[in-house]
């Protein structure tokens, strides 16, 4: 019996180790490529023949607007994090703790709206932003506006969390003379730290991957790019061999802070997605 278990565990470890290699391989390769001194696209070896920091130096040189793109993305991510979290808390509180006429109807309408594919409305949104002067070089505030404006519809996980807090808390507070606004700011928010961190984390991660809409809104104007748009253009350009190692370096610089942040807050992320998965 003990021997059987030992063999079983050995097989399990073997599977896990193989999986880990598969899962980590692209990242290791990415890091190695970013330090490669030789030019060219993908090459048929992994470890650079000549180690160099040239790719990173290029990112920060004057011939490349990487710093600008990075700052753009960071600004969008931070602004969206703060505003979207606030919007979602407000909406979740209203829908979870208050009963008003039209509440069910509102939730159903939002549910139906969510079934339309996001890019359907792209040309219309572009036009609206253009009217406000928030496209091309001014794409950053435009992207913030678009992300935040519709974020109220993503209330499900947060509302689910609020729903699980006993209603009697509210009732007791109202008896003590607290207003609804005080209940939200003094009671619900302090009790909801995990879900607020989860909401903020998700809001922060999304802008780093936003390629589709960001590239459309910036419309070829370099000053309005975010990192996803500019890096993707590097890979898809005809001269991709010349930019490939630079893309690797640029990608690494984006991935490191986002990954570290995610790993630190992983606990809250798991809590959020698990809650969201079971309550729908």
């Amino acid at each position: 019996m003990a021997r059987k278990r030992k063999i079983g565990n050995a097989v399990c470890y073997a599977i896990l180790i193989i999986m880990s290699i598969i899962w980590l391989f692209p990242f290791v390769a990415l890091v190695l490529q970013s330090f490669r001194g030789e030019s060219g696209g993908m090459v048929n070896y992994l470890v650079p023949k000549q180690w160099s920091l040239a790719n990173y130096q290029f990112l920060f040189s004057d011939s490349c607007k990487y710093v600008r793109w990075y700052t753009n993305t960071l600004i969008i991510a931070l602004a969206v994090t703060v505003l979207q979290t606030m919007v979602i808390i407000c909406v979740s509180y209203a829908l979870s703790r208050m009963r008003f006429s039209g509440r069910k109807a509102l939730m159903n309408i939002w549910l139906v709206l969510g079934m339309f594919p996001g890019f359907l409305t792209m040309i219309c949104l572009y036009f609206l932003l253009k009217q406000m002067g928030l496209t091309e070089d001014g794409a950053v505030p435009g992207l913030i506006l678009i992300s935040v404006a519709s974020s109220g519809m993503g209330y499900y996980v947060c509302k689910g969390y609020f729903d699980s807090m006993p209603r009697s808390l509210d009732e007791a507070a109202i008896l003590d003379g607290a207003t609804r606004a005080q209940i939200l700011t003094k009671m619900i928010i302090p009790l909801s730290k995990p879900i607020i961190i989860y909401t903020a984390l998700v809001a922060f991660m999304a802008p780093w991957c936003d390629y589709i809409f960001a590239s459309y809104v910036a419309f070829g104007h370099e000053n309005g790019y975010n990192v996803a748009v500019s890096m993707t253009r590097w890979v898809w350009t005809n001269d991709y061999q010349g930019y490939f190692t630079r893309f690797c370096a640029g990608g690494i610089l984006v991935a490191i802070p986002v990954t570290i942040l995610f790993m630190c807050l992983q606990k809250y992320y798991v809590e959020g997605v698990t809650g969201g998965a079971t309550k729908g």
Partner: peptide, 26 residues
């Protein structure tokens, strides 16, 4: 180790993996 793929922004990981399987890829 597994969760790395959630943490790393998809445009980095997917673009790289996509290129890995290209005709001239790794």
């Amino acid at each position: 180790v597994l969760v790395m793929t959630i943490a790393v922004p998809q445009f980095v990981s997917l673009l790289y993996v996509g290129k890995m399987f290209a005709v001239d890829g790794l």
